[in-house]
Nucleic acid binder design. Structure first.
Lengths: 146, 146
DNA sequence: CTTGTTGCAAAGGATTTGCACGGCT
DNA sequence: AGCCGTGCAAATCCTTTGCAACAAG
């Protein structure tokens, strides 16, 4: 986590940008988040500490975080852009419960490899991918049986 | 294609809805599309035949088409909701060129199986999934070398 | 001091909704 | 006739942009 802040600091400096309290509050809120916060969720979290921070700044800062390589945008299909940490977090895919919305992060090395092969077979130089697996989670299956 | 129209007709009737020229024009435009048209692209296509059809009706009809099982929403991350045919088209995933935006539809049975196993291993009852593979297509790789 | 940053409000783009009119059944 | 469907405009929702005041280097 300290690493992340240092990287952000470096990024800011190297681009000739400025270190502001807002930026660090937002980055901190993001780093403390576990799941996939939306811009609005981050805004709410930051406002608890500094109620003057505007939504706009959250958007702008998250863009910087993505550029710096610390964050990544993900879309689960609920119409919101969500963010997830990228550093120190191995790549993973998402299992999403269609009933309660819970998401689990998963990886399967074999699938990863096959995806790369598949892209190459079509002449593509693979850069990244998103795999969203939708289903009904164990809990919801039980609830639905009742 | 006739099948599709019949299914749509059945759906409409079974729900006590009405058969209108607009709906059929939109469904036809959608069925004739090859790729992944957005609501706006479909609207433009329909307007060539009947310029009075409104954008709103396109949205509403596409929702019906999704409910009827003939269409499905997909999102490539360009901010637009796109639609693809669901009937008579085996399931497939998407290879998307990050440079020119071209999309190729692909399937790999082995990956499909593994995905199912992965979901089950986490207690999920799998329903569907989306796999988006991003990369640089063969053409763009050549162009970028120059 | 110079330049980047902020919050607000306004603008934007995509999609939805309210409503009176018109068209199926 | 009754009710659904339509187009339009207005309303939403999320995100971006313009701008004047402000703060970091």
């Amino acid at each position: 986590m300290h690493d992340s802040i240092r990287i952000f600091q470096n990024y800011i400096t190297s681009k000739g940008l400025k270190s502001t309290s807002q930026r660090f509050r937002i980055v901190e809120a993001f780093l403390q988040s576990t799941g996939h916060p939306s811009a609005e969720e981050l805004h709410a979290k930051v406002r608890e500490i500094d109620p003057t921070v505007g939504q706009t700044t959250v958007y702008r800062t998250m863009k910087l975080l993505c550029d710096s390589g610390l964050a990544r945008e993900v879309q689960f299909g609920d119409g919101l852009t969500r963010y997830e940490q990228r550093l120190g977090v191995e790549h993973h895919d998402h299992l999403i419960c269609e009933h309660c919305g819970a998401t689990i992060e998963v990886v399967d090395e074999q699938i990863e490899k096959l995806q790369e092969v598949l892209a190459l077979r079509h002449g593509f130089k693979p850069t990244r991918h998103h795999l969203y697996l939708y289903g009904i989670c164990a809990d919801c299956q039980k609830k639905l049986q009742k």
